[in-house]
Amino acid sequence: MTTTVAHGGATDSPYALSHLDALESEAVHIFREVAGEFERPVVLFSGGKDSILMLHLALKAFAPAAVPFSLLHVDTGHNFPEVLEFRDRTVAEHSLRLHVASVQDYIDDGRLRERPDGTRNPLQTVPLTDAIRELRFDAVFGGGRRDEEKARAKERVFSLRDEFSQWDPRRQRPELWQLYNGRHAPGEHVRVFPLSNWTELDVWQYIAREDIALPEIYFAHEREVFQRSGMWLTAGEWGGPKDGEAVETRLVRYRTVGDMSCTGAVDSDATTLDTVIAEIAASRLTERGATRADDKMSEAAMEDRKREGYF
């Protein structure tokens, strides 16, 4: 036996990549694998930080050529206006093509019914699945990360979905080395998660390092909010506040950006990337625990939604 470990000192060679460089390289590799093996990939793009990060990585992966994918947004109809504006500005800036699947359209023509609790996140699954089928996408990039939630912790980088977009955790393909198996039958597609191995802190550190622009609601600002289920929700046309829910103005920011009805703001005075990073590093709550009502519904809320074809 030859022992190669030099104990007690800095052992990383100058060629060891920093963790951000390693994660970036892995994500770029995944984007290029999909570009090489699929006919019609699409990037799910909401204007939230994870999708902005995905787009940034895709732009780097194919530079100086254009990103060979279009974008798809499932708009719940209750999205933050600041985020939609950012989305459209980004699409225009990079001359991208954006498809929008609208939950509101489905509700208006009766294909979907509003839930009693007003939450629209679970309603995104049907418009998403229809858009994938109608536009014949065979690879769909999602910003899901394994550190977000325990059902996601077992998700593959390449996740095969049947023609109903359903996820079967027992039928997942083992993923070894850097060999991603994207073979699928006609009608099936593969969800691809290039940020699988990133944590929330990695995302923010990378955003800071690369100086990536984000919608302003990620930073502390004055906002009219009211409390529901222990979270600060934004008052608005989507259905809040109800009687007995008092609106107040607070200094808050958003850690995640989703449907206004179930995405909560957190008290914060972090107005810059560096103060946001410091705040996250010190936080004792996960970003979903702090800000997502839909994941609190049951112990297996995310597992159930994923099985049905959610992001």
């Binding site: 963790h19 394994r146 550190d147 325990k150 059902a151 912790a153 077992k154 955790p169 027992r170 997942q172 083992p174 699988s196 191995n197 944590t199 802190l201 990695d202 112990e299 297996a300 597992e303």
Partner: peptide, 27 residues
């Protein structure tokens, strides 16, 4: 470290789960 309801119901772990942690020295 148990992720899925299918596992919890059967008290087994059926797959590889990925976990993330960090110290000041390394991820």
């Amino acid at each position: 470290t148990d992720g899925l309801r299918a596992e919890r119901e059967q008290g087994i772990t059926i797959d590889v789960a990925y976990r993330y942690f960090a110290t000041p020295r390394r991820r």
